[in-house]
Design a protein around this nucleic acid. Structure first.
Lengths: 344, 344
DNA sequence: TTGTATGCGTTATCAC
DNA sequence: GTGATAACGCATACAA
């Protein structure tokens, strides 16, 4: 009915008028400034509540150059690890009075670039990024960095030096732990399906695998080391190649859980008994790994710790400026743990 | 090193100066206004690119009262259904030039209330909400609605009339389909674990269950109908109650997949063979249901269709105003489908 | 402790 | 087609 609503979008001027005070005093009271009389402040707070006043973020941000908003770019929120990290970040930032704008790049570089522009346009106070697997050039973040906006990369971080903060899991150790575990259960012919080496994740996980093999003086059959997009289909194809030959692996270290699950499915369908004939480990501790049978051994990445560390570093950056060149030099590394289950 | 950066946060004034034009013309060109000479516009666009100009959203929003930003509140982004809906919404909104601020209420009413305030404070152009299971009072959304900001509820919607748009799954039909399916496979003693009746979801799913039972003239054992928080633990407890008695169910319709999975686990541990001794269906088609063995029958809610419909309605609301009182009267209902698997 | 005045970057309303 | 100018709501330097 009443189409022209927009009734009382109350401003500090309305409060000022109602209380016969100046807008400056209202602003100060609302921002907990020191030099406001206790009584005045209470009056103002009461009147603000009564009028249903809510600060206009845009006006405030425009004036003060602070939005109290942090941007976040992830490949997909539906990936378990990222969902958990995001939840931790959001809840933690909320306590600090910051909001979070969550964006998905769909693992597409062009989307990531657009989102960086948009978030810059929104003048976020800081940016948190888990980049796409194809991102090797990071210049689309330059504008943010150059404007003094802290940028924190987590999980998937730039390979080359970049003027930002890095927080990553201990992927080398993860790869090492998974492979060593398989070796300790008596396996000798250990295959490895990993992602493209454009990402630090798979470089490191694979390096950990190679290191473990080397330390135990086990030969690596390079035909059994795959670097490909870690999809369901690719995993099955790799399996069919490996199990089509005269000699077959007795273990598989998959660099993510999707691959491990697909490989396990393939094994079941083709009469390869897990863990008797083939032992396996995945990576990330996706909820599915504990439900599938046999349950899959995997690597726990502690997304909650990653999230906590991100916010900790971020708040420090936001408060103290990011003059700690040291902190940027080396990445923060979050520990990982092996989870042993029925598949190994 | 160079601490005081903040170099050229270029504004339209810088472009104006460089081109000896007025800021008004720059603004018009950048916003695709009709009355700007083609050549002037091109010059401006070129110079804007050259200076790395990016519109300041806050200034723009403050002046025009449009943020091109939509707020979203969900219980948790890690729930599969919601993650899929969000992804669809975000990708679709992006194409329309809108941004999305995703927030999680953690299924807590107080958090939902705070988030509504914050998003109002951010002056979002619209708000999309899947409310918590405890939300029965919706007055925290009043401020948005009263200010003429479109509010769209999806999935979990208000039970009482409320001046907003509703988009929901066909939960009644979902419950009906699941139960009818169990009946058709020959089951007669069908148990049902559902959520608290404060939510439309469980009211409707349970109503569908009851309708199917009634139509097939099967008696409902009320001791086998549970309305509780749908956690893993509660599901196991319900199972142990049901299977501790002299007569046991031959089928279970669980109102969500977490419950179905927990119940299946319980069955496996206690020698209750699924589907021989007990047939089961879940709800939502969580990825885990297709991986567990035996795989679980469930209800597909088509999150992509839900997301698409939300954006479709939203864009209409944003463009044409929400004078269509009719549209608000009845909710949009998205169809659901039964997925038959090994558990039934 | 409070008030006055100014400007953040943009868009809209007038003029020309 | 384009320019001058006011205004959006708030925070801050300075004055009182």
């Amino acid at each position: 009915m009443n189409k022209d609503k927009k009734p009382q979008e109350n401003t500090i001027l309305d409060i000022a008028e109602a209380l016969k005070l100046s807008p400056a005093t209202i602003s100060r009271a609302l921002n907990n400034h020191p030099h406001v009389k206790e009584k005045t402040k209470n009056d103002i707070l009461k009147m603000a509540a009564q009028l249903g006043y809510r600060r206009n973020q845009m006006a405030s941000g425009l004036r003060s150059n602070k939005t109290h908003t942090v941007g976040l770019i992830v490949p997909r929120i539906s990936m378990f690890f990222h969902a958990e990290v995001i939840t931790t970040i959001q809840n933690s930032l909320h306590k600090h009075g910051y909001n979070l704008i969550i964006c998905q790049s769909n693992d597409l570089l062009t989307m990531e670039q657009e989102l960086a522009e948009i978030l810059y346009s929104s003048r976020v106070d800081a940016l948190i990024v888990a980049c796409t697997l194809q991102t090797t050039d990071f210049s689309h973040f330059n504008r943010l960095v150059d404007s003094g906006i802290p940028v924190i990369f987590y999980d998937r971080v730039p390979l080359d030096p970049y003027n930002a903060t890095f927080i990553k899991g201990d992927d080398f150790r993860g790869g090492y732990l998974a492979t060593s575990h398989l070796i300790e259960t008596g396996c000798k012919r250990i295959a490895h399906i990993s992602g493209k080496l454009t990402s630090n994740l798979y470089q490191d996980r694979t390096a950990g695998y190679r290191k473990a093999m080397e330390l135990h003086q086990l030969p690596i059959n390079e035909d059994w080391v795959f670097h490909q997009e870690l999809t369901h289909e690719n995993a099955r194809e790799a399996m069919s190649i490996m199990f089509g030959g005269p000699v077959v692996p007795d273990a598989l270290f998959a660099a993510n859980d999707v691959t491990a699950i697909a490989a396990l499915e393939f094994a079941k369908e083709n009469g390869i008994v897990v863990p008797d004939a083939l032992k396996m480990t995945g990576y990330s501790n996706d909820p599915r790994t504990s439900i599938i049978s046999p349950s899959l051994s995997t690597i726990e990445q502690h997304p909650d710790l990653v999230g906590k560390k991100i916010v900790e570093v971020l708040m420090d950056l936001l408060k103290n400026g990011h003059e700690n060149a040291e902190l940027k030099a080396k990445p923060y590394v979050i520990p990982v743990d092996l989870i042993r289950r029925m598949s190994s």
